[in-house]
């Protein structure tokens, strides 16, 4: 038995090794070199430069933006907006994923295609669309809502909507494949054992899709914090009220405050890199289990 076990391993690893070394030797190395160079030039170097520029004068850059009340307000607004959008998208995303996977209805295919639409629509178009419908002066619903005391465009609700729009597919895209994979066996079993719909969802379905939701949430969070185009159209960029962190970066750069722009950009970049690291750390762990 031990003999079998020890003998089984080398043949598994060996063909790959042998094949990739002598036969694909030069091509593989060239390819590796090319890919590494390409990624370093396009991604790694520029990103690291921003970090370097931020800390050129030590921590004064970061300190500067954290002491600037306008920037702090913008950062707070960004966080509030991102969290609201993520909460909305998570609830909605799980709901619509269940709908897409577990039920049959006419137009399902169209709906599942439309759900992906926000990924490929320009953020500017998103902003424009929201302004056309919810704009205070001549939107479709805007004047009515404003009459009811709810200003959407040029106010926080509009920013939340724009952010929710662009990050919409992320949770759905993570949850749908998992739902498809787990099938309905366990849910049916739970129901035959007397669980009601809510219990089935809470005890059976939710634990199974837990990790998919977590990825979706982390990705949405990264996307929401960084949304720029749609927010720019919808927010009106009112200093201290509807200016978000990404708008601050642009503003500062255009006003020749490079240090401030780099520092704010660095903060945003840190958060998004942290999000990817989190996803890449928890993903393999989950797939193994």
């Amino acid at each position: 038995m031990t003999d079998l076990l020890t003998r089984e391993q080398p043949p598994k690893a060996a063909p790959v090794r042998r094949r990739s070394r002598p036969r694909k030797g030069p091509v593989a190395y060239l390819l590796r070199l090319f890919v590494t160079a390409y990624l370093v030039l396009l991604v790694a170097w520029p990103v690291s430069l921003v970090a370097i520029r931020t800390f050129e004068d030590g921590f004064s850059g970061i300190q500067g933006i954290l002491e600037d009340p306008d920037t702090v307000t913008a950062l707070k607004l960004t966080v509030t907006v991102a969290i609201s959008a993520v909460v909305v998208n998570t609830l909605f995303g799980v709901g619509i994923s269940l709908l897409l996977v577990r039920s049959e209805f006419p137009g399902k295919r169209a709906l599942s295609a439309l759900v992906d639409l926000p990924l490929s629509v320009s953020p500017i178009v998103v902003g424009l669309a929201l302004v056309l419908v919810y704009g205070g002066r001549n939107g479709w619903f805007g004047p009515t809502l404003e009459g009811a005391g709810l200003q959407v465009v040029f106010a926080t609700p509009g920013i939340v909507m724009a952010t929710a729009f662009v990050a919409l597919p992320l949770v759905i895209r993570e949850v749908v494949p998992v739902l498809e994979e787990i099938g309905t066996d366990q849910e049916v079993a739970a129901q035959t054992l007397g669980a009601n719909g809510w219990q089935t969802f809470w005890r059976v379905t939710l634990p199974a899709i837990k990790w998919a939701i977590v990825y979706g949430v982390v990705l949405s969070l990264a996307r929401s914090l960084g949304e720029f185009g749609a927010v720019k159209v919808v927010s009106g960029n009112v200093l201290g009220q509807t200016r978000t962190a990404t708008l601050v970066v642009e503003e500062k750069y255009l006003n020749f405050d490079q240090q401030g722009a780099y520092a704010t950009a660095f903060l945003l970049a840190m958060v998004s890199v942290a999000c990817i690291v989190i996803v890449s750390v928890i993903r393999p762990k989950n797939e193994r289990s």
Binding site: F228, G229, S272, V273
Partner: peptide, 10 residues
């Protein structure tokens, strides 16, 4: 994941 405006700056 990088905010697009940051991507531009980068």
């Amino acid at each position: 994941a990088l905010p697009t405006i940051v991507a531009g700056l980068v």
